[in-house]
Design a protein around this nucleic acid. Structure first.
Lengths: 301, 301
DNA sequence: GATTATTATGAATTTGATTTATATTAACCC
DNA sequence: GGGTTAATATAAATCAAATTCATAATAATC
């Protein structure tokens, strides 16, 4: 035989009940079964666990150690079972998010904060690292949601539209380009463009604006933090293109202009496995995320 | 079915091996058995635990929680098993000591300190509280050793002699009784006797000296700490009777005198269950305790 | 598309936990 | 102290379920 959970439960029950027969009753089994169980366990451990010559039954020193084990282990197991029950009920789960878009942190954190209050049992996790193959990660359940602006038709994955945004040019208000009503690709040919440190194909400025026109800016400077980019732009070190939601309510002395005469519009999506899309907490997350760009201004400071 | 240790081991092995078949091999079972096991577990939990459409096999989020549980629980169990193995090998165990004699702390602590170094896996425990029925406590395995000066012939319990000592009169060196070569019961009739706060029957002064002579001291003052008793005696607030080992090397200006012309001699015993007496660590403890009164002087300061 | 490795499934087997029935032991009570 | 009662142990029988064997289905590789 081998040590099993049933033995831990038995020891706990016996120690609480003070007798085999009462413990057996509480465990919904016959006294005989429990007696066999205890004897088997003692044989297996090779040490007496109970002091039988005395009533109420007492634990030996080895028995006490087993009880200790039981009292540490069983609550963990019960916890786990409760978690799984919550999971089945749709109360608990995992919301592991991969973000392809760098600026998304700006609205995602406040949205997740709201989410956390409504779904305390869901554990939230953001994985910025695996942006490269986020959809694969979604397929093997490494993540549960991917935030992305280019939906790829994929079996078993569905893309939920969140909100539209406009990649917008931003420069210091004294900057010469601030004089123009809108910005064209050629305007950037002699500029220093400040971007997030990711490949060009994943930056709207390139994929939607410069690359189609086959134009390169004079210099590219890569900066991690959104607020740092804005600071550099405000101090005239370069220009940038950022989603409009980032620029809606900034302190800096900045000029924002649309890209091209009619402006460029993009849409942000949340991708998840089709198997999961019906989950309440996911739907709720999508709803919160959809409104996130609106709430952004008040939440910022 | 029910969650069992085997499932935790399975999940751990699968996550390590990255495939059912390899994991099954490592667990010394057929791939089929493991497959059945996993399926059964998933049925019982009601949630998919593994992502099979991908290789190497990955855990789902629920599976990862189960793995977490496994990685917390299994080491505890393995620890327990190791403890029991040590126990069977006589390496580990419990040494829970009940002391009937108050002054014994004086030599017991240093002895246990030595013991601890030789038997690190034995956990030591002193229970001063249950002095009243120490032998009963020994029988039900509440304690493993009783230090006592009056052995009672009891089945299944054996008394190991440790060392002899002389209950000795002590007074301030200016005290009138210090002039006498030895002390007789009548000498205490008008004295303040300082004793430990326990019943008279458990104090040598009474059981061996005053009670047989049917004499009571003028006043009894009860004091917990040995050093406090000595302090009070030295400052002339009373007299006391203490084991000679306590008095061997004191700083205070004290006179010590034998009780009665020929002196009184007593013996200290360690009682243990006959079933345990052969245990190596107990024998070692007895040996250390036997020498304890000798080492006492050097260990004291 | 064929081959190989991996996983799943069904039926048979075996293990071992539990029950039923009964014996043994300890505790209790005049 | 003997009789009663409660508690525990044991033996044999039963039952549940874990594992194996044999084989099918599936995914991965060349």
């Amino acid at each position: 035989m081998q040590l099993e959970f049933r033995h831990l439960r038995a020891v706990r029950a016996i120690s609480e009940a003070g007798s085999l027969s009462l413990a057996a009753e509480r465990l919904h089994m016959t006294q005989s079964a429990l007696s066999h169980q205890v004897r088997g366990l003692e044989e297996q451990v090779g040490i007496e666990l109970f002091v039988r010559r005395v009533r109420p039954l007492r634990l030996s020193s080895a028995g006490e150690r087993l009880l200790e084990l039981a009292e540490r282990v069983l609550p963990m197991v019960e916890d786990f079972v409760a978690q799984m029950t919550d999971c089945r009920a749709g109360e608990a789960g995992r919301l592991s998010i991969a973000i392809e878009c760098h600026a998304c942190f700006e609205w995602l954190f406040p949205a997740l904060e709201q989410f956390r209050q409504v779904w305390p049992k869901v554990d939230i996790d953001i994985r910025p690292g695996l942006a490269f193959d986020a959809l694969d990660a979604l397929m093997d359940e490494q993540v549960d949601v991917v935030i992305s602006s280019d939906p790829k038709e994929t079996p078993d994955i569905c893309f939920v539209p969140l909100f539209t945004y406009a990649p917008t040019f931003v420069a210091a208000s004294q900057h010469p380009l601030a004089a123009k009503p809108y910005i064209e690709p050629e305007d950037l040919r002699n500029e220093t463009l400040i971007t997030y440190p990711v490949e060009k194909s994943r930056l709207d400025v390139f994929s939607q604006f410069l690359t189609p026109a086959q134009i390169e800016p004079h210099t590219i400077r890569q900066v991690e933090l959104t607020s740092m980019i804005l600071l550099l732009v405000a101090s005239g070190r370069g220009v940038a293109v950022l989603p409009d939601w980032v620029l809606q309510q900034e302190n800096f002395d900045l000029a924002t202009r649309p890209l091209t005469a009619k402006g460029i519009t993009r849409q942000l999506f949340a991708a998840c496995r089709t198997a999961d899309v019906a989950k309440d907490f996911l739907q709720d997350f999508f709803a919160l995320a959809s409104n996130a760009s609106l709430h952004q201004p008040k939440d910022r400071r």
